[in-house]
Design a binder for these strands. Structure first.
Lengths: 220, 220
DNA sequence: CAAATAGTGTCTTTGAGACACTATCGT
DNA sequence: ACGATAGTGTCTCAAAGACACTATTTG
C-alpha cells in the first residue's frame, strides 16, 4: 500500500453475484439462470455481472438486479465475498455476493421481459438434492439461505418478501417458511404488532372471515 | 459471465484491510500504522495487503496478519467489502475488510519485531474525535466496531480477546467494554456459566480474594 | 480486623410458548 | 347452520434484571 505504482500488483476481475429471493406457492425460491456455455453448460447458476472500473459494488448490484432480473428499487444487501482461487476455472474472479428480496407480485410483473433464461428455483429442493450447481454457487446459496433465516429472527427483513400491504396470516406464512417451523398465531401477532399499523381495508371474497390488511410502520 | 475472453472485462486491484482488535488498559484498541507517504501521509491507516493472483481472500488475510502484525493463529473473520470508486485516490481498489481479535498478551510478545510503525489506537477516542483517518478507514472501523458489539451479544466472540485461561471479573470487563455498559456480576456469571469450565488454578498475590481461572468449554 | 475484590441466593419483571376461546365471512 | 379461516385472552414457564448477601485474600 506504500507504493504509488499500481502496476506491480496483481489485478483481478471482480463480479457481483445475485441471490434474488422470493416466496412463491408457499416456498422460498431463488432466481437462477441456465448456463448455455461451458464451463458448467446446462447447469443452473446465479445471475451476476462484472464490476466496472468506475462502478461501486452497490451500483454493480443494482445494475445486475435490473439487467438480469428486470427489477428496480428492491431491497438488497451485501452478503459476503468469495475468493477461492479455483472457483471459476477460466480465470481468477472474486465474487461479492448480494442478497435481494422481492415480493412475487413485483417479480411476475417483469417476468418474460428481460429475464430470458431466468427462472425461479425452489431453494429447499435445490439444497436438499445433490444436484450440481455452477461454480461455487451452491455454497453461496447455502450461506445466503442461512443468513436470511438468521436475520428474520432479529430484523424486519421478512417484510421485503410481501407487498406494501399484507395480511397477518400471509406474513406469518412467510416467517414460517423462512424459519422452517410453524408458529403460534397469537404469539406471532403479539411479536409483530408493534412493527405494523392497520389499514382500513381487508381481504374479501373468501368463504371465511376476511383478514385485515396491514402495512409496515415506518417510524422508530 | 458467458464469455471466455476475460480480457474484455475490467480488472481491479483487491486488497484485504485488517481490523486487529485487542483490549489494553480497560479499553478497546485497534492496530494501525502511520503512513509515511502520500496520499494521507502522516495519517493513521489500517494495515492491509493486496490479494495475490493465486491467493484466496482468507489466505491474504492470514498473510496480512502475519506480515503486518507479526501474529499467527489468531481468530479472524471476513467483515465486509468496500468498493467506493474514489476510496483510494491513486487507483481503483476493492477492499475486503477482515476483523481479527487477539488477547493483548499475544500481541505484546511480538510487538517491536515486525510491526515497525504499528501501534494500538484507542477505538473510542478515535471514533469520538474528528481526527481524520486515511482512505475510508474510519468508516470501516466504525462498521467493525458495530459488528463486534453486536456479535458479543449472541456469540462467544469475546473469548478471543482473553487468553486461554481467564478470570470471570476479567471476562466481564471485556464484555462491559465491548457493550459500553456495566453488567451485574451475578447475572453475567449465570449467562457465562454454561460456556466455561473451571481450572484448578486461581490468581494470587492481590490484597483480596483470589479469582478462579476458567477456560472455554469446547464441546457443543 | 479493615479494605478490597470474588463469588452466591433469591425476588421481580419481562417475554416466549402453549392453548382455548370468540368472530366473521360464503354457501 | 356449518365449514373455514381470522383474530383474542390468559395461563405457564424460563430467562433477564436488580439487589443484598457471604467469602477469601493481604497488610
Amino acid at each position: 500500500m506504500e507504493n504509488y505504482d499500481s502496476s506491480i500488483y496483481d489485478k483481478l476481475s471482480v463480479a457481483v453475484d445475485l441471490l434474488v429471493f422470493t416466496i412463491e406457492n408457499d416456498a422460498l425460491k431463488i432466481l437462477m439462470v441456465e448456463r448455455s456455455e461451458d464451463p458448467f453448460a446446462n447447469m443452473l447458476a446465479l445471475p451476476g455481472v462484472f464490476v466496472g472500473i468506475k462502478e461501486t459494488l452497490d451500483e454493480a448490484a443494482i445494475r445486475g438486479i435490473r439487467e438480469e432480473a428486470g427489477l428496480e428499487d428492491i431491497y438488497f444487501e451485501q452478503l459476503y465475498s468469495f475468493g477461492e482461487v479455483e472457483r471459476d476455472p477460466r480465470m481468477r474472479i472474486i465474487s461479492v455476493a448480494y442478497m435481494a428480496l422481492v415480493p412475487i407480485e413485483k417479480l411476475n410483473f417483469h417476468a418474460g421481459e428481460r429475464t430470458l433464461s431466468a427462472k425461479l428455483v425452489d431453494v429447499k429442493e435445490l439444497l436438499g438434492s445433490d444436484e450440481k450447481v455452477a461454480f461455487d454457487h451452491k455454497k453461496i446459496i447455502e450461506y445466503g439461505r442461512w443468513r436470511l433465516a438468521n436475520k428474520v429472527e432479529y430484523t424486519k427483513i421478512a417484510f421485503h418478501l410481501v407487498g406494501e400491504e399484507f395480511t397477518l396470516p400471509n406474513l406469518q406464512k412467510v416467517y414460517e417458511i423462512l424459519l422452517g417451523k410453524s408458529l403460534y398465531k397469537a404469539n406471532f401477532r403479539k411479536k409483530i404488532a408493534p412493527m405494523i399499523e392497520e389499514t382500513d381495508r381487508s381481504t374479501s371474497g373468501d368463504a371465511h372471515r376476511p383478514s385485515k390488511l396491514y402495512r409496515l410502520k415506518d417510524e422508530e
